[in-house]
Design a protein around this nucleic acid. Structure first.
Length: 645
RNA sequence: GGGCCCGUAGCUCAGUCAGGAAAGAGCGCUGGCCUGCGGAGCCAGAGGCCCCGGGUUCGAAUCCCGGCGGGCCCGCCA
């Protein structure tokens, strides 16, 4: 079974070139056949090899051309030697036959392209703090993680999607404290939005109380400089509070009232955090209920996005299993751990130098790695410390772990790897990928979950949907309102996903609705529209998708547009392989955007249904193949293919 | 201050891993076409010191060194 037509052709070409070089020059060389658009389909450059053996590049190109011509390669139409280049034009009818065969056999699996060796891979993604709704940043994380998982599956890997429920830590304690003060009521809005609201209110109310207390002290001590700056900080927090109050006055007042009557809320919160780590029954219920409530809302959003997980890993379970204590115990026996002002720290720089980790982890030699705090002076652990144990657990069921985490956590991930190295998990460190992506910037909005200012995924979906609906209305198709709504949802969500995936992960995304929902180019709707066009030609034909099973005369594809389209279709599994191996979903978006453009060009210039019968069949099969590939790609990207819009 | 990432057409970006032939696309702009298998079109054109300066090389947008500009990180937060 040939999964990847173009790849197999190029591979045969590569072998042929190597054979010729071996026969002509007696050299065992591995050569590279590169894609070329201007002078043919592929090319081989002779320069470096020619230089190595003291031959003239143009002479070598000529020799390779002659040698290849004697081989009579059926999938090559012509070979040219120009300067030091050997240029190849592919025999498109032959390639088309192979491609059609692969497509008709594999159908929805066309694109599947198993790697030479398959692995069990855990993709951990989204993993938002379970105390507020998902926001734009999580959207990028979620889309990347989900499409990476799908890509790796297409490479034949055994992929498991994990969501790390970070239910341990100070922030969760704040939310749980506030929620419990309210008497843990049924949320009056979407549950994650409600918990997020409670968290923001609680955080700022507590902050106000501590600032006021500190101000009293400063007044007594006559520290006017600090007093002044703290007053302006207080103003800021009060501003946040008044804004929060407007959103849900009853909940707010109740919370304010009950927290203000406490002696020392901050201490209470730290206590919840400490006790929860010890699985103390007095706090387990309130923390769990808080987190589960929020998670319910988060799951609703994920479901709407069509994203699922195989495993929900609770951080508390890792802590309670005593693995965290074990890890700390083992680290403590090494020379790299010390106490500093009551906290247990890991001397990361020293460890990295002693174990020679800098090169392995690509850390600059002159960069001084800061210490890592393992245990707070009050005895509680920190996120990264707990992550050491969690990572060890993940590797019990996988050879490779991909963590989709923002680039801002780079240092924490380096700390994690250093700690694992000290513990002897070298193989794991090498197979632990911090898949770092840049931030999503919304013009003007500066988000902060503490201040309760976040643009949630739910908000974005709603806005995308209503904008899409507006576009649909303008076209005035004969569709019922319900149909329009569900199409708008598919377009809106598809547009959001595409916008998150189409930018390479190292670049920040500047979110811009005009671009997200640009129906004419490089967007989700643009792809969906191409699919609609292809689908409707098929729907109008008598054969429909069954044309994929029919033999057609591939020699009829004479135009540049048809040739380009066929070549592009044959390339798809190769793109999947590259995208999966390099973890780059944006390679797929680039591919499919080109595919849609090529199809549009074909569509506008070559009639299908009204063509002469043998030609009609050939073109119809090309349309069906394009539709199928579009559908498969959209699925990888998590975008819903629709048949009307 | 130190580290990382980014800098290519008016705009949004490919191309940089693995150096190669006149630097690619779309949008926008200019001019033309078209009553179409869904016009959310089609064809043509203009538009580039590939951030700057050195170096390596027969050859640099691509590799190396030094700058400049923007973002992020350097928490007993996650």
């Amino acid at each position: 079974m040939i999964y990847s037509p173009l790849e197999s052709v190029v591979y045969r070409l590569k072998e042929a070139v190597e054979r010729v070089i071996r026969e002509r020059y007696g050299l065992e060389e591995s050569v590279r056949i590169e894609e070329e658009k201007k002078y043919g389909d592929f090319s081989f450059k002779c320069f470096s090899l020619a230089k190595a053996i003291g031959e003239r590049p143009d002479k070598m190109a000529e020799a390779v051309k002659l040698g290849l011509e004697r081989e009579h390669l059926p999938f090559v139409e012509s070979i040219d030697a120009v300067g030091g280049y050997v240029n190849f034009k592919l025999n498109i009818p032959e390639l088309a036959k192979m491609t059609f065969e692969a497509i008709s056999k594999l159908r929805d699996k066309y694109g599947f392209n198993p790697a030479p060796s398959v692995e069990r891979i855990i993709v951990e993604h989204t993993s938002a703090n379970p105390i507020h709704p998902l926001h734009v940043g999580h959207l990028r994380n979620c889309c990347l993680g989900d499409s990476l998982a799908r890509l790796l599956e297409l490479r034949g890997h055994d992929v498991s999607r994990h969501f790390y429920v970070d239910d341990v830590g100070l922030q969760v304690a704040y939310a749980a404290y506030g929620y419990s003060k309210l008497g843990m009521p049924e949320p009056s809005m979407k549950p994650d939005h409600f918990i997020g609201y409670v968290y923001a209110c609680t955080y700022n109310i507590v902050e106000t109380i501590s600032i006021r207390r500190r101000l009293e002290e400063l007044k007594r001590e006559q520290e006017f400089e600090e007093y002044k700056s703290l007053v302006s900080r207080l103003d800021e927090v009060l501003g946040v509070l008044s804004r929060l109050k407007k959103k849900s006055p009853e909940t707010f007042d109740k919370l304010l009232d009950r927290i203000s009557s406490e002696v020392d809320p901050e201490k209470e919160i730290a206590k919840i955090n400490r006790l929860y780590e010890k699985k103390d029954p007095s706090v387990v219920d309130i923390v769990r209920k808080t987190v589960l409530t929020c998670l319910k809302g988060i799951k609703e959003t994920l479901e709407r996005l069509g994203v699922f997980f195989d495993s929900w890993d609770w951080e508390s379970e890792v802590v309670w299993s005593s693995l965290v204590q074990e890890v700390i115990g083992r680290l403590r026996t090494t020379e790299f751990v010390a106490y500093k002002q009551g906290a247990l720290i890991l001397k990361a720089e020293e460890a990295a130098r002693a174990l020679n980790l800098k090169e392995l982890l690509s850390i600059p030699i002159k960069y001084e790695i800061p210490d890592m705090v393992l245990i707070r002076s009050d005895g509680s652990t920190l996120y990264t410390t707990r992550d050491i144990a969690y990572t060890i657990l993940k590797f019990k069921n996988a050879e490779k772990v991909v963590n989709v985490i923002g680039v801002e956590q780079k240092l924490a991930q380096i700390h994690l790897k250093i700690a694992l190295s000290i513990l002897g998990f070298m193989k794991e460190v090498k197979n632990l990928v911090h898949y770092a992506y840049e931030q999503v910037k919304l013009s003007r909005v500066r988000m902060s979950s503490r201040r309760g200012v976040i643009v949630t995924i739910d908000d974005l979906i709603e806005e995308a949907k209503s904008r899409a609906l507006l576009e649909i209305e303008q076209r005035a198709r004969v569709l019922s309102y319900d149909e329009k709504l569900s199409i708008a949802e598919a377009i809106g969500i598809g547009a959001l996903k595409y916008s998150m995936l189409s930018v390479s992960p190292t670049k920040p995304i500047v979110f811009d609705w005009k671009r997200v929902l640009d129906f004419t180019q490089n967007s989700g709707p643009f792809l969906q529209y191409a699919y609609v066009r292809a689908y409707n030609i098929l729907a109008k034909s008598s054969e429909g998708e069954s044309i994929l099973g029919c033999k057609v005369d591939t020699r009829l594809f004479a135009s540049k547009e048809e040739r380009d389209l066929l070549k592009h279709l044959s390339k798809f599994p190769a793109v999947v392989a590259k995208a999966a191996d390099d973890l780059r979903p944006d390679y797929i978006t680039e591919y499919v955007n080109d595919l849609a453009k090529m199809f549009n060009l074909f569509y506008d210039n070559y009639p299908v249904l009204s063509a002469e019968e043998t030609l009609r069949k050939a073109r119809l099969k090309l349309v069906a193949s394009t539709a199928l590939v579009l559908r498969n790609v959209l699925t990888i990207l998590g975008i819903k293919p629709i048949t009307r819009m």
